[in-house]
Design a protein around this nucleic acid. Structure first.
Lengths: 139, 139
DNA sequence: GTCCAAATTGTATCATTGTATCAATGTACT
DNA sequence: AGTACATTGATACAATGATACAATTTGGAC
């Protein structure tokens, strides 16, 4: 059902950001951009773990924290679902939280490659000029 | 798994060369002569430390510096592996390509969330102010 | 339909592995 | 001596993996 979701999740084992946080970020982001809608079922902890080649406990940890945040609902023996009424924090808050996470990751990885702040800003500017108002680019 | 590796590592406690540097050199050498191949897992810091009768922090230090050099990938809770791409970002060209890819992704995902260019720039600036400068020691 | 065993799904607990922080040791230079 | 720095050791911690368990669903026997 949500094969599309598990396929669009990407984790970087080399990142210094823990795997379980990477999963949390991407789930929240896909809710914010409506790739995931209320009521949607997420992959089982074991299915997603196999997809990402990681231990299912790591996925379970992500799901548990998302559940505690009220974003999803985990039900033992049933599965995990996007909360019907997603407003524990408001979609606008979730949306801005996602952008912060994206910016944070960009800076973190760029710094890891040894780039200066000016270079990080410059390359962003280049991309803003290259990517106009269009959305869908094959990934 | 890499018993062959740990058995073939030899350190000299009387050498004026620090232990952690001896380990680094031998790992690099075994990668050069293909005793160690990309994807191979190295012994755990504790296993190698016990083998060499030294403190596991010393091995951890070697692994950390090799990780910063891009030679290996240390992953907390998982282990350490030889980097898939053996050339540790030697060329400036590859390094800049990586930054372009990171910037491109940031812009693409942010646009997908519906943010304006100004917001994308602003959130990046916020992160640049939050994330500290890293002290590059070694190499 | 009812019941029960098996499969499925999330949970709990502990082991394993790398990380962070500080202390102890040693060496070089005043 | 005394100071400063590098190296190594000790300890607590964070992230991930392995295993056994509990709740729910599923499917066949009756």
């Amino acid at each position: 059902m949500n094969k599309r979701f598990s396929e669009s999740i990407e984790i970087d084992l080399r990142s210094d950001l823990p795997i379980y946080l990477q999963i949390i970020e991407q789930v929240k982001r896909q809710i914010a951009d409506e790739t995931l809608k209320p009521g949607d079922q997420l992959p089982t902890v074991r299915a997603l773990a196999e997809e990402l080649r990681i231990n299912f406990n790591t996925v379970a940890r992500s799901y548990r924290m998302l559940d505690e945040a009220g974003v999803i609902s985990t039900q033992q023996g049933r599965g995990t679902y996007i909360t019907e009424k997603p407003p524990p924090m408001g979609s606008e808050h979730l949306r801005r939280e996602s952008l912060t996470a994206l910016a944070s990751r960009y800076v973190r990885e760029a710094r890891r490659l040894g780039f200066s702040f000016d270079e990080i800003r410059q390359y962003l500017q280049d991309q803003l000029e290259v990517q106009p108002e269009i959305n869908n680019e094959g990934e």
